Amino acid sequence: MRNISDIIEQYLKGILHESPEGTIEIQRNDLADQFSCVPSQINYVISTRFTLEKGYLVVSKRGGGGYIRIQRIELPQHAAIHEHLQQTIGESMDQTVAEGLIYQLEEARFVSKREASLMRAAISRECLMIKLPYRDELRARLMKAMLISLLGR
């Protein structure tokens, strides 16, 4: 059985997918009532599963009539992907950012679930057992090489 965070995430992704603009505005308290949970659970889901690294822009307006706006950020098309990778990855990349990029690429269906799993394994700190900052530099080079290979097909 899935937990409440997974259910809320899937619900929000579903309504985002149906939105022609790729943007939704929600009332935190209304959503908490809908799922019979505390509003902080909604905050948790949004802050951990709808991050910039995962391809989402979140804007929160507090107070009466406040809302949370979630917008899906689309990856550039194949023609601009190399430039995007160079800007996104740079010369160094920590594991959290790398995993976020892999997640975004998987969600956008640029890479398969299997390819994403292989990439996560290759860039993990358990695999790259060298000291910082060399580990983050090696991770960036590996990510670029894997993505250029995969996306160049």
Rank of each mutant, 00 (worst) to 15 (best):
I4N: 01
D6R: 06
I7K: 06
I7E: 01
Q10A: 14
Y11R: 05
L12C: 03
L16I: 15
L16P: 01
L16W: 04
L16V: 04
T23Y: 11
T23S: 10
E25A: 07
I26A: 13
R28L: 01
N29E: 14
F35P: 03
C37Y: 03
Q41C: 10
N43K: 12
V45C: 06
S47N: 11
G55R: 08
Y56A: 03
V58G: 12
G63K: 00
G64E: 04
Q71G: 06
Q71C: 06
Q71N: 10
R72V: 05
I73M: 12
E74R: 15
E74P: 07
L75F: 12
L75I: 15
H78S: 14
L85W: 13
L85K: 14
G90V: 02
M93L: 11
D94W: 09
Q95V: 15
Q95I: 12
E99T: 04
E99F: 15
E99Y: 15
E107I: 13
A108W: 08
F110E: 10
S112I: 13
K113P: 14
R114S: 09
R114A: 15
E115H: 02
A121N: 14
S124M: 06
R125G: 13
C127K: 12
C127L: 13
I130N: 09
K131C: 03
P133Q: 07
Y134K: 10
D136S: 03
E137G: 00
R139Y: 00
I148L: 15
S149Y: 08
S149K: 14
L151G: 05
L151V: 01
G152A: 10
R153Y: 15
